[in-house]
Amino acid sequence: MSFQVVTPYSLDEALGALASGEKLVPLAGATDLMVYMEAGTLAPCRFLNLQELDELKPTLSVNGSLTLGAMTTYRDVRVSPIREQFPMLAWAAREVGALAIQSRGTWAGNVANASPAADGVPALMAYDAEIDLWSKKERRRVPLAKFYRGYKEMDRRPDELIAALHLPLPQPGWVDYYRKVGTRRFQAISKTLLAGRILLDADRAVRDIRMVFASIAPYTLRAVQTEAIVRGRELTPEVIEEAAQAIQDEIHPIDDIRSTETYRRRVTSNLVRDFLSL
């Protein structure tokens, strides 16, 4: 059997195909799936080509929140004025491969690919993104921070399609931080990565915080325990150090061909220090 493609021209058609029980792999920008195909790591399957669906077309609409249509690419964000309100999205987009990947790779695809080393997902998660999952049966919305359950395991049924991503508009005062530690400056896979956001009170106490990491766990990890340690407290050197130590209990890095557990642990703590020493 070889690879086949179904190209639906309406959402009903697409959701109907997904509901048929046959396993279909949604195909957006193809920048990950083509790599797996070429490497022979993807078993022959039938793809659901999303390119012709109007409902999923690249969009960046602001209506109380930011909605990214499922086919919205990294480049779409990089060249959009939306980057003023969501600077971290633009920073993250820059980190995905290089320009030619950014023209095709999609945010929703990054979510669905579920790589622990995703560059886009941490930024989305730090902005409290929610995912629209549509099926013939229902339309539901789930928080991205609760979407992953294990390595490449996620809260998406085979009959569901990621239709859009929603990001609440940031309130004034939040400061964003995004730092990818890769094997080189661009065109790199992260060894560890921190997407952080912080809101300080007038007296420099932490009113709210998000800390999301890549490449140090089987999936993109929001470090809720470490966040809790600093929330409500003033960012003294002692508190920062406490957070830098606490993160060690939340991450599960491994040795692989790109780096070592030891390195990932140390640098992840360094990222926490760097972020909180703003």
Partner: peptide, 11 residues
């Protein structure tokens, strides 16, 4: 700009 090794002809 696109990488033609990552573009399936169906798209």
């Amino acid at each position: 700009l696109v990488l033609s090794c990552l573009v399936p002809i169906c798209q």
